[in-house]
Design a protein around this nucleic acid. Sequence first.
DNA 1: CTGCATCCGATCAGATACTG
DNA 2: CAGTATCTGATCGGATGCAG
Lengths: 130, 130
Amino acid sequence: MHADAPQGSGEGRSFKPVPLNGICALLSDKWTVPVLWRLSLAADHRLRFSTLKKEVEGITQRMLTLTLRNLERDGLVARHYFPEVPPRVEYELTDMGIGALHALEVFNFWVHDNLHTIREHRRAYDDGRL
Amino acid sequence: MHADAPQGSGEGRSFKPVPLNGICALLSDKWTVPVLWRLSLAADHRLRFSTLKKEVEGITQRMLTLTLRNLERDGLVARHYFPEVPPRVEYELTDMGIGALHALEVFNFWVHDNLHTIREHRRAYDDGRL
DNA sequence: CTGCATCCGATCAGATACTG
DNA sequence: CAGTATCTGATCGGATGCAG
């Protein structure tokens, strides 16, 4: 556990000052997390393009293609092409992709726990602004 | 520990399907994490506007203002105004702000551990594309 | 089925100038 | 010092049409 890391005191692991920028951009891409998430729910972490398009709420074909390209480029997703007719393509979550999702779990829980409070803050703030 | 959460099996905590969207947007705002981070490094989690502007690498006045407004609105940062001449304003990380940063630690470590691998994947992918 | 190309409106973010 | 206002180029993302 590294519950106190921000202070940078000796915790066995030297704490690098926000390397988040750059790679973090990947996960702020609006569709990357939903896509990774949907893949993680599949039995073998594999889904076809068309399935993803259907089941990732609201994504367009263009955005799904771009998102998958970036994820493939970064090694979070593997692309499997089957030259049949009609063609079939499956996308598979790699081990690193699974790791990324796991690394976001704690944050996910935090959001879940604090969503209500944040919403209230927003309402209070907006009320004072009218 | 909830190392297996994505499958949604009973782990004591019901796993909500990606509530990340919406609030997650906050933290994908490019400047929010750097600003929160810089505040967390201050002795009492407080810094003046001008200090932040100087020490958050590359941020413009406009973006700093907007970022701080959003963080204040969400309750992650508190604004303290001192009506002196010249005016002074301090921004303080709230407990919730500290919590948000902690919730991102695991991801931060993941990025640190995988940055090199991701870069290599990118290079390999880009080479194949020329 | 999968995916690329194009057009186009909406939003983002930098630079600059001005105020209490 | 700590903002606000405006202008503007860049990027994002949706819609549509076409191709292997």
